[in-house]
Computed example of a mutant assay.
Amino acid sequence: MKAYMSVCKLRFINGLQYRSAALAGMATQLFFGFVFIMIFVAFYSRSTVPAPMPLPSLVAYVWLQQAFLSFIMLWFRDNEIFQLITGGNIAYELCRPCGIYQFWFAKLLAQRLSSAVLRCLPILLVAFLLPEPYKMGLPPSPAALALFAITLLLGLLVIVAISMLIYISVFWTMSPAGSMLMFSVIGEFFAGMVIPVPLMPGWLQNVAYALPFRWTADFPFRVYSGQIPQAEALWGILVQLLWLAALIGVGRWSLHKALRHVVIQGG
């Protein structure tokens, strides 16, 4: 465990060096946050039926998306791992005195954490200082804030476990393009990144509830705004843990199967 913690720490420190990329990312995320909120404000102002999600909750939902984008985006990738698999340098990974799954998991987790640390606080600060209706509100209670922090971190672990399946699939496809496109399009849609899950038609919501993606973004963001009650949030944490265990189990089994049939050419 100490080896994986050290890898995570080193990758986290290394990721903090990319400040210029973080500044560019903050500007982009603030811009898209304003655009999305303006679109939703326009729709809400013309709506003649009760909204399934109050506008202040929706505004908080959008700003949390932008602030913690590194936690929840599926197109976030480590090209080094892809090159290890497709270039044959996976042989060096097999020589390490540690598990490949845990090693890669720690690397991916640290990269997402370092990217989010550099961006989330400035974005949230701007969001809290904006005028209405763009202003982001506080959670309804300290308990809701604590549950949000727990669910967000569990969602981060779930998204890394899903990302591991993308990398493992490259052992068979030998090209990351297809896996990245499929997972990112489907995953981010059902996570509520395009349309918040409460605004989807009923049948699409049922599909989203049956998949693990909404537990990475939609669930913690709605816990923050109080749309999901505390009792339901506690049950949701249990579901997150079950999904995390299932995804890690499938990932470790798939990686073991892939490594048993891997062929490294060259010398």
Rank of each mutant, 00 (worst) to 15 (best):
R252D: 10
I248W: 13
A42S: 06
L242Q: 12
A24Q: 09
S175Y: 13
Q102A: 14
F71G: 03
W172K: 15
L157E: 04
A246C: 15
V207W: 03
M1E: 09
A67S: 08
I150F: 01
N14C: 08
P140A: 03
G192F: 02
A146W: 12
L259Q: 13
Q66S: 09
Y44W: 01
Q111F: 09
I186E: 10
A27D: 07
L109G: 04
I195Y: 02
S6A: 10
L138W: 13
R19I: 10
P140M: 14
L30H: 05
K9V: 00
L138P: 05
G155E: 01
R19Y: 10
Q205M: 11
V185A: 12
L121D: 02
I264Q: 03
P122F: 07
S57E: 15
A3H: 07
A110I: 03
V59D: 02
I248F: 12
Y92A: 09
D78I: 06
Q230H: 01
E232Q: 11
T48W: 05
M5I: 09
L30F: 06
G137K: 12
A258S: 15
S169L: 06
P133R: 09
H261C: 05
Y167H: 03
S254Y: 14
S225G: 06
K257M: 11
I264N: 04
L244D: 11
N89D: 12
L109K: 04
M73D: 12
S184W: 05
K257C: 10
I90E: 05
V59G: 04
S175E: 15
I248G: 08
Y134L: 08
L138N: 07
L259C: 10
L74W: 03
G187R: 08
A60H: 14
A231N: 09
V158N: 13
L181V: 11
V197H: 04
F219K: 03
L74S: 07
F105D: 04
G202D: 09
W215G: 02
I186K: 08
I168G: 05
V158A: 11
V35E: 11
A106Y: 04
L129T: 03
I37K: 02
L147N: 01
G236S: 06
E188P: 01
M200S: 00
F190T: 04
G25W: 13
Y134K: 00
A231W: 04
G226Q: 01
W243A: 11
S114M: 07
L234S: 02
F128N: 03
M38Q: 01
E132W: 14
Q230W: 00
Q83M: 07
S45M: 00
A144M: 13
Q111S: 14
R112F: 11
P176E: 14
Q227G: 10
F36C: 08
T173S: 15
L154G: 02
A144T: 11
A144K: 12
W172L: 13
F189I: 02
T86L: 06
A143I: 15
Y167Q: 10
R19M: 04
I37Q: 01
W215Y: 15
A21C: 06
W172M: 11
F36E: 08
V49A: 14
P176Y: 14
L157M: 12
V7R: 15
A143H: 15
G267Q: 13
Y18L: 13
I166V: 15
S20I: 12
G266F: 11
S179D: 14
L156T: 03
I166P: 07
R96M: 05
F71Y: 14
L165N: 14
L124Y: 00
L118D: 08
M164L: 15
M200E: 01
